[in-house]
Simulated scan of single mutants.
Amino acid sequence: MEGNRDDLMRNIQGRFPKLSKGQKLIAEFILKHYDRAAFMTASKLGSNVGVSESTVVRFANELGYEGYPELQKSLQDLVKVKLTTVQRLEITKDLVSSENALKGVLKADMENIRATLEKINQKTFDSFVESIFSARNIYIIGLRSSSTLADFFAFYLNLILENVKSLNHGISDIFEQMLKISDEDLIIGIGFPRYSNKTIEVLDFAKERGTKICVITDSLLSPLAARADLSLIAQSNMASFVDSLVAPMSVINALIIAVGLKKKDHVAETFNTLEDIWKRYDIYN
């Protein structure tokens, strides 16, 4: 199906005269509130406009989709990079309530992990791990909400390897921290909607230097993937104004474990030393 908002809306408008009365109600709602419709189930959308779930499914078929999930994904692809925090808050009201927030969010996170497991490419994952071992230096960049993922990844890789640099805002500018980056190095970019412009600029800078680029992002259509040599895709469809980072965190965990298994003797030695330090300085209870 068409890949941008204008094409999708034009498709709906072009077919509008031939739609049934109930389907026209759906079309009008999507044309006015496509950002909300993108995250509604077929049942919820039907309830909002006063038609049956089956009418919503037939509407999707009428537009040329095999089913409603395919139409919903097209809508989500259009809006997820554009939604403001206020719009995300409005979507949250449609998806979860204070009564079902726990189960609703946990189910959405479970679905993100399930979808990621089905779609992720094992060969790309293996190549990603090999790229980590073949690099002279490893730079990791993830900003805004993705900074948590980047910090976690860098923390554990630093326990296994000795050539990991976390790029972040601090005393020096990020580009100053990359001053000596070259084609012998690897940069790992982490980013999810809404994508940070600074992360994209950093990847462009690295690309100019011939640096290998590996990314963890939500789609091959993301601006990070467009600049990458290798892309690991982790689904992050949001159930609220809070980014869903469960699936990306799981992928990062898998990368850390895979790297650690290849250096298991070194890792064992490192953690034995750390245990002595933790015990000596009473780090843990």
Rank of each mutant, 00 (worst) to 15 (best):
D77P: 01
V79F: 13
V49I: 06
K80T: 13
G22N: 04
T41E: 06
L45K: 00
K73C: 08
Q23W: 01
K18G: 06
Y34L: 13
K44S: 09
P17K: 05
P69K: 04
Y34M: 11
D35Q: 14
N61S: 10
E70N: 09
K21S: 11
V57F: 12
K80S: 13
R15F: 09
K21Q: 13
R58F: 13
G14N: 14
L31N: 08
N48P: 01
A42T: 07
P69H: 04
I26F: 02
S74Y: 02
Q76C: 05
I30H: 01
F29Y: 15
Y68S: 04
K44N: 04
R58W: 10
G64M: 07
D35T: 13
Y68M: 07
R36K: 14
H33R: 15
L45F: 03
E28C: 02
A37L: 11
S52P: 02
T41D: 03
S43R: 14
T55Y: 04
G46M: 00
G64L: 07
K24W: 01
T41H: 01
Q23D: 01
G22F: 00
K21R: 13
S54V: 14
R15W: 06
S54Q: 13
K73M: 15
K80I: 08
A37K: 08
V51Q: 00
D35H: 14
L31T: 06
